[in-house]
Amino acid sequence: MTEKKPGWKEYPLAAVISKPGSCTYHNTGDWKTMRPVRDDSKCDKCGFCWIICPDAALFMGEDGYYEVDLYHCKGCGICAHECKKSAIRMIPEEH
């Protein structure tokens, strides 16, 4: 059974979107063919990977390391390429 799509009356005026940042529900993580993996022994927690990620797909974990948000990471590889300590490398996504 297919889901019933909203009728015209159910849409907000002028298709205004009133949920800020709602694209966060969008899984762009499934775009990637490679995923970043961190080597804790090399990482100095400088945060550069975080600020140069176009997709805001890194977040600070409990211990100060930057964790990859795999639900949003598109696998572009910038973080790995830019890490001065070579603490991140890209590995093929499992399939």
Binding site: K5, P6, G7, W8, K9, Y11, L13, A14, A15, V16, I17, S18, P20
Partner: peptide, 30 residues
């Protein structure tokens, strides 16, 4: 009814895919 306000940040003028465009136009015409 629609207002740009940092306390209630809405997005005005999004991309309307074929999926919704007709409905929004119907709404406007009504």
């Amino acid at each position: 009814v629609i207002q740009l306000d940092p306390d209630k940040p809405i997005s005005i003028g999004p991309v309307g895919f074929p999926e919704i465009y007709t409905e929004i136009k119907k709404q406007q015409n009504v």
